[in-house]
Design a protein around this nucleic acid. Structure first.
Length: 164
DNA sequence: CAACTGATTGTTCAG
DNA sequence: CTGAACAATCAGTTG
């Protein structure tokens, strides 16, 4: 008997049991506590220790214009949009129709977050599922990235664009 | 003129 | 385990 482990919400299992696929994908779905200054320092050290990690990401991209500027971005796969972002896409359209005056993501984001919390588990699972597949793909890229990093992360020398 | 910020939550990584 | 930071997006603001 498939008694699964839905001790979480369970709510109405009459809908579809396919929702479980989103929850137990990985074991690090914990994250939600407050903060301990102790750890804060630790993490800060880590980031600083890193070469340069990512330069603020997207923001710099715009500034970069046509220059790559960053060399580590070539290997580091960008984070795929989260389920929330997918929901945002859909919500954005709907929100625009209802509030044509408001177009800023800031306002929508607030409305989205509020609604997001009101959404039922099964409803959110739809987006979670999408994110799951996305991560799967991302996982491969990440594996390759790590593997290559351990390998020596050398190779790939196409800085023909800019010379110095 | 051009770039950054802000706001939302979820996912990610590294120690 | 935990925290810090980024993922999209676009109007608004600043330099």
């Amino acid at each position: 008997m498939p008694k699964k482990k839905p001790s979480k919400s369970e709510k109405s299992a009459s809908s579809s049991p396919s929702v479980n696929a989103a929850s137990n994908e990985r074991s690090r779905m914990v994250l939600r506590a407050k903060s301990t200054e102790k750890m804060k320092r630790l993490a800060l050290l880590s980031r600083e220790s890193e070469e340069e990690w990512r330069p603020k990401s997207a923001k710099s991209v715009k500034t970069a214009g046509g220059k790559k500027g960053v060399k580590l971005d070539a290997k580091m796969p960008k984070k795929p949009p989260t389920a929330f972002f997918y929901f945002l896409e859909d919500f954005r359209k709907d929100y625009k129709e209802q509030n044509p005056d408001v177009i800023s993501m800031r306002d929508i984001g607030k409305a989205c977050g509020e609604k997001w919390k009101t959404m039922s588990y099964e409803e959110k699972v739809q987006y979670y599922d999408i994110a799951n597949e996305k991560r799967r793909e991302f996982d491969k890229a990440m594996a390759a990235y790590i593997k290559r990093k351990e390998s020596g992360e050398d190779e790939e020398t196409e800085d023909d664009s800019n010379f110095e």
